[in-house]
Design a protein around this nucleic acid. Structure first.
Lengths: 247, 247
DNA sequence: TGAAGACGCCTGGTTGAACCAATTCTGACC
DNA sequence: GGTCAGAATTGGTTCAACCAGGCGTCTTCA
């Protein structure tokens, strides 16, 4: 079990990712016991210290529990986990059906988070926040008209970042981070999910205007309506992909 | 620098908690560089391997970044962190003012999470979920009338757990977990924040009835009104504590 | 015969030393 | 003054030994 895997030149990290994938994909079920550290180290062709780093990282992410004298057991992470597991879980999902099932739960929560972020932004954004959002909006709109997907994808990440920053709240930043991370990773993996209809520029403009006017309800409504549309399109695209992959 | 600290008989965990506290309390500022592993190990009176476990756990929680050849630097966790840091951050806060400032941001988000959980519960709860909530409600109401704070605190944790479970959503569970953890730790530290007015039983009953009726808006409204009240009372109590501690 | 305790074997926890590898600093050299 | 080789520093990996918790077994004794 060599594991050339990714370009990561870090043995402990490689082992960690491999074990995490095995757990999140169900190959290692909750309650199941992992081999001992000595055996695992031999399996991965490394030594105990390096392997222990990987296991402790698993423990830190609540994927396993380690007890002196008893060994390492896979934790019931669906109950005890946190959103940090979102991106890895999507990454470990082997088929579109699983991804769709997870997204059905996640996307409404994401809308809620972004609504909350928008509300905070209206209340707390200063001039530089709004200016930053306006710059990114201009960039996104021109990229949209020029059909430049790379600039758009990158720009949209920046737009979300700017929205979160405008809330000036550690809480919303910490809540949003796992969503943003999962969103980025998911688009890297399934670029087809990058769904945008012709209303994209007008929605961005509408949001910006509501924010500048300090109209809280209009700002929140703009975010809600836009992302609800996006999410429906994403789920619809996923359903089509699943249908076509079965043929 | 011994560190008898908590009852944890685990050197790496002890060092991890100590460094985490130093970072979250601001003693170690973002961008600052930590001493080398060899030096840190000597400082804590342990060896490099054990100390490395502590540092890797810090890295896993995004509190530091580690780069080969460059050392360990404190990360800008306010920007890159996740809600996992909430409870440790509150724990590291040395004065009530900091706690109050954090809670002002967190509590509205918590209400939102619980509203979302309530909405999911209405849509997805089965008979056993409702029965479980009813049992806990009965227990809580009788404990309230009997003024039994221990039973109440424990029971209320169970009530929140049951509400989350009734949503049958991994997403809401993962989102809620850091809140529940922080809530529990905070009440352990500041029992005075355990604020309940006389309307507590009726609010619980009202929520349960709306849930049983499948009335989504009424259920969400019950959660919102109750927790908005609670949160106002908590912030008010905190403000009073700060005022009295300054005299 | 049955229960109590000693032992052995599993497990993770800790240690110290040595070496590999990435980065940066230093100073000689051109 | 700029360049580059190499030393110094830092994390990355390996090894081998021992400490310590948990559990089953096997002996011993009542």
């Amino acid at each position: 079990m060599s594991s050339p895997d990714n370009g990561n030149h870090n043995i402990a990290a490689t082992v960690f990712h491999d074990l995490r994938r095995q757990i999140l994909s169900g190959q290692l079920a909750p309650g199941e016991r992992l081999p001992g550290e000595r055996e695992l180290a031999a399996t991965y062709g490394t030594n105990r210290n390096t392997l222990r780093e990987a296991v402790r990282r698993l423990e830190q992410t609540r994927l396993v529990t380690v007890r002196h004298g008893q060994g390492v057991t896979v934790a019931n992470y669906r109950r005890t986990g946190t959103m940090d597991l979102l991106s890895p879980l999507l990454e470990a999902s082997t088929n579109l059906s699983e991804v769709a099932h997870i997204l059905q739960d996640i996307l409404p929560a994401r809308v809620l988070v972004l609504e909350f972020a928008a509300r905070l932004a209206v209340q707390r954004a200063d001039k530089s926040d709004i200016e930053r959002l306006r710059d990114i909006t201009d960039l996104l709109v021109s990229a949209f008209e020029g059909r430049d997907p790379t600039v758009m994808a990158h720009g949209f990440q920046r737009w979300l970042d700017a929205l979160i920053d405008a809330g000036h709240s550690v809480a919303i930043r910490w809540i949003a981070n796992p969503f943003l991370e999962a969103y980025r990773d998911l688009l890297d993996r399934f670029p087809v999910l990058w769904v945008l209809d012709a209303s994209f520029p007008s929605h961005l403009r509408e949001f910006l205007k509501a924010l500048e006017d300090g109209n809280e309800e209009a700002t929140v409504a703009a975010v809600r309506s836009y992302y609800s549309n996006i999410d429906e399109a994403v789920l619809r695209t996923l359903a089509e992909l699943r249908a076509s992959s079965r043929t």
